[in-house]
Design a protein around this nucleic acid. Structure first.
Lengths: 175, 175
DNA sequence: AATGAGTAAGACCGGTCTGTCTGCACCTGA
DNA sequence: TCAGGTGCAGACAGACCGGTCTTACTCATT
């Protein structure tokens, strides 16, 4: 419920009143479970990490290939299909980071979850035996984030373009 | 004045009252010049395009090299220094696009100015005689936007990483 | 039957937002 | 001298914000 609203319309655009009205819960009940709106947003970010990062992206990519390098490249196959969805809502972690700033608690949490995404990439890079896996993951993440923003602009081939550059990145980290 | 506030703190975080108070102008005078806050934001975006895109980034990059491909790569040199500034404020076009959504008038305007940035890249690609300059510019733009988001997260080497991938992109568009 | 926990509904608080309107001073040109 | 435009200062409207608190009700346990 809150997940749909936050991911599609952003944190700032959804007020507490709307949340409780749509979920049919009383305001006092809401504030008994969450001491503030921000703490609900933190719970949303954690859920987003599980549903989107772990299940929808990394999980899907791992299912589509067996070799680690192919699993990495499959991330952009998943992205390509995700970009085509009409309810494409970009990356909540990026949205909130840019919306609240890197010093706000929610911005800091978003940075943390983005680092977690990078951790998945780095783990796959290590399984693939690539050189300097952390540098690899950081470069890879640039391609992921850049393609998401391009998709928000309307470039439907953003995933394919990023995947092409990702292939070159793998080559240059292969000894 | 409004430029500083909007670029550093975002459009939604700066209200009309603060704007008029800081600029020492009366509210009625403000609304005589701009029919709404959004129209001021539109003027801000246009100024941002001139000061930041044209002067600070593209202009600087062109000054630092003579060959078009070197001028392209110099963009990431400029980015690298920009990322180190303590008043680094990310890209207002990306911020506003993600904050307002791609269907909002301000989001649409941001998409337009982002396309203009891509136009500068494409023009340089054509001068350099690179293959498929529009595809090149779109891939290049992914690297620019991805590195900006990574810099917002705190990765100070984001420009260097993007520049490396940008070099490979040039190679693959050279016949 | 009595008690207490939990809940829905919503009034309420102080504050913010964009945008309008009034009051008053100033300046300029006829 | 006086009309008209322009400016600042700020009250005000109407809506919304996050968050607190009251009221009335249900239901499970004692």
């Amino acid at each position: 419920m809150a997940y749909q609203l936050f991911s599609r319309r952003g944190v700032r655009d959804v007020g507490v009143n709307e949340l409780i009205e749509r979920s049919g819960v009383a305001k006092a009940t809401f504030y008994r479970h969450f001491p503030s709106k921000d703490s609900l947003v933190l719970a949303f970010l954690e859920l987003r990490d599980r549903l989107w990062t772990v299940d929808a992206i990394v999980g899907q990519a791992k299912q589509r290939a067996t070799k680690p390098t192919e699993q990495l490249l499959a991330i952009f196959d998943v992205f390509g299909e995700w970009f085509l969805r009409d309810d494409f809502e970009a990356c909540s972690f990026i949205n909130i980071l840019l919306e609240m700033g890197p010093s706000h608690p929610l911005g800091l949490a978003s940075i943390d979850y983005l680092a977690r995404i990078r951790g998945h990439v780095q783990a796959l890079a290590e399984q693939a035996g690539l050189d300097r896996p952390e540098d690899f993951a950081r470069s890879w993440h640039i391609l992921m984030k850049g393609s998401i923003v391009s998709a928000s602009e309307g470039d439907m081939q953003a995933a394919r373009r990023a995947q092409q550059m990702a292939g070159w990145l793998i080559e240059h980290h292969t000894s």
